[in-house]
Design a protein around this nucleic acid. Structure first.
Length: 561
RNA sequence: UGGGGAUUGGUGUAAUGGCAACACGCCUGACUCUGGAUCAGGUAAUCGGGGUUCGACUCCCUGAUCCCCAGCCA
């Protein structure tokens, strides 16, 4: 499972850390953090951030903190914290004792704010939101100083304490850093540090009615925890000067913020807000719907955590905005499953086959290989009888010129069993094929003919009397377009939703070994794809999710006509 | 039009002054008791224009394009 030793990544972040280690900036220590806001579920995009932050720290012998960035009680909920922790653990990472909340630091943050007031670099401002916007200036014009900017330190101290004491209504006052209203970086134009919010906090209870903003809380939390490298996404680049400014003013431990490009993927909705909409509006069944790009959705779908890790590791890290093709993710999933998934036989769309020259009532068993990629996985016995199910797709009455499966008069191999030849096609009054009659060659027992005769096709099958009935859920992309956010003319992103993203097959026929597999168990249905047992399964009647199909060369041939 | 970033095949990354490499995708072919897997081969790139240099993806100048920022969101 280890990466090849000579391919250790040398991306720009690792290069910076190596440099710090050379110069002794952090005395060789590497400590990172993952700071989710508890306002939604983690998705594949977060997985990149998690894998990078945890992965790099580990690689350098350091540790990673999990810190809930819970500075806005209006948007957040404990509901999400457990899900976030579970998903990170599932991905394969552990924060040990280092579980924190930004709200753990509210008292320190408050003290530090007082320090800045005393230093004369923070002030209480009475401007309301609209006024503040006017005073801020624009991208091209400088802002104006707030009329409250020159309050005395004493007055600021008094006002700030009274803000905390709850003397003022929401929005009446803010605490702001005193930096430079004409700074070309708008984040430096006297940014807000505290706002008044009379709202109970999911962690801190009703203790506070003033809450720190992201800019004031984040870097200081990093500092308190002794973080050395604070890795975040590109949009925070503009905030780094402020991150640095606060820590310079405080003269506290000063981590290095490093920004990298977040993960974008074709066909995947990454916006938390829109994912929430999909859940709330019932487009999907929940955050863990297998069509969701959430970690819980992927897990239920059957994607394995090591697959996500190797996917992200192979992508690399850079600062350029980019969008990964979904096929890349699929490749990684298949690559791993191919090596590890046990093979079984299951028929999704059953077509009954009667072997007319096979003795009625007779049953025999064939030895089937569990995983040809890994002979140590051994073999299992699969029952065979006179009546079988094969896949409807494996029969064509009038075959495509390159079709080499079953058609009238053609001989194929039933995997691990016998050669059979189609002799009759039975139809109902509507002309729908209901049954096939075939003959078998007893000499081909086990799947090879002693006369060396070759067949072009090998198909899977399940013995009718031994079949386990199963509900199988097939998934397609929730969005067929490459960029789900790109709304069609006059429409919205919702118009991109694929109405056929879920297909339920109520009566698939599976080989008997599949009757009682536990939820989460995965396998390959030969020739069809990789499947996972869904938690909805009941004893003796499993529900399978198709995680991903096999590569389908035949589909390409058909497409070409 | 202020500031901050970015730009290498269709896609994602490497090469940090010395043969533009790897992976995905796509296309051939071989092999196959999974039209899977595997194997062999092929396709295809340094944003433009100047300059420095024996030599430039890399350094300098200049232009273009894309992304981010005007929440009391994170």
């Amino acid at each position: 499972m280890a990466d090849a030793p000579n391919t250790a990544p040398t991306d720009f972040i690792r290069q910076i850390i190596h440099k710090h280690n050379r110069t002794g900036r952090f005395k060789g220590r590497v400590e990172t953090r993952f700071p989710p806001e508890p306002n939604g579920y983690l998705h594949i995009g977060h997985a990149k951030a998690i894998i990078i932050s945890f992965g790099i720290a580990k690689e350098f012998g350091g540790v990673t903190h999990l810190r809930f960035d819970d500075t806005n009680p209006v948007k957040e909920d404990v509901e999400f914290t457990e899900a976030i922790k579970r998903d990170i653990h599932w991905l394969g990472f552990d924060w040990g004792e280092r579980l924190h909340h930004a709200s753990d630091y509210f008292e320190t943050l408050y003290d530090w704010a007082i320090r800045l007031i005393e230093k004369g670099v923070a002030f209480v401002c009475d401007l309301n939101a609209e006024q503040m916007r006017e005073y801020r200036g624009t991208l091209t014009e400088p802002g104006k100083n707030s009329p409250f900017r020159e309050r005395s330190i004493e007055e600021n101290l008094d006002l700030f304490k009274r803000m905390r004491a709850g003397e003022f209504p929401d929005g009446a006052k803010t605490l702001r850093a005193k930096i430079d209203m004409s700074h070309p970086n708008i984040n430096m134009r006297d940014p807000v540090m505290y706002r008044i919010l009379h709202k109970e906090h999911h962690q801190a209870g009703d203790k506070w009615c003033i809450y720190p903003t992201y800019d004031w809380a984040h870097g200081q939390s990093d500092s308190i925890e002794g973080i050395t490298h604070s890795l975040c996404s590109l949009e925070f680049e503009n905030h780094r000067p402020l991150y640095d400014w606060f820590l310079d003013q405080l003269e506290e431990h000063h981590p290095q913020q490093i920004e990298f490009a977040r993960l974008n993927m074709t066909h995947v909705m990454m916006s938390k807000r829109n994912l929430l909409a999909l859940v709330k509006e019932g487009v999907v069944a929940g955050w863990d719907d297998p069509r969701m790009p959430t970690l819980s959705g992927l897990r239920r779908r059957g994607v394995q955590p090591n697959q996500i890790r190797s996917f992200v590791e192979k992508l690399g890290v850079s600062k350029s905005n980019s969008t990964v093709e979904y096929a890349n993710f699929e490749h990684t999933i298949r690559e791993d499953f191919n090596a590890h998934a046990p093979r079984v036989m299951g028929v999704l769309r059953p077509l009954k086959v009667v072997i007319t020259n096979y003795p009625e009532g007779q049953t025999e068993e064939f030895e089937a290989v569990n995983n040809p990629e890994n002979p140590e996985d051994g073999t299992r016995m699969v029952p065979f009888s006179r009546e079988l199910y094969i896949e409807q797709d494996d029969f064509q009455e009038e075959p495509h010129r390159k079709f080499h499966r079953l058609y009238p008069g053609n001989e194929v191999r039933l995997r691990y069993a016998y050669f059979i030849t189609c002799t009759d096609v039975i139809k109902d009054a509507d002309g729908t094929i209901t049954e096939l009659h075939c003959t078998y060659d007893p000499a081909s027992r086990g799947g090879n003919s002693p006369d060396g005769r070759k067949v072009k096709g090998t198909i899977h099958w399940v013995s009718a009397e031994h079949a386990v009935e199963s509900e199988v859920r097939l998934y397609q992309q929730l969005f067929l377009v490459e960029d789900p956010n790109e709304a069609p003319d006059g429409g919205s992103w919702k118009d991109n939703i694929n109405p056929d993203s879920l297909e339920i097959i109520p009566d698939a026929k599976l080989e008997p070994s599949l009757a009682d597999k536990p939820a989460g168990w995965f396998c390959q249905f030969e020739r069809l794809g990789y499947f996972t047992v869904d938690p909805d399964s009941k004893e003796g009647s499993p529900v399978f999710n198709r995680t991903i199909t096999l590569r389908d060369t035949w589909a390409k041939i058909q497409k070409k006509g």
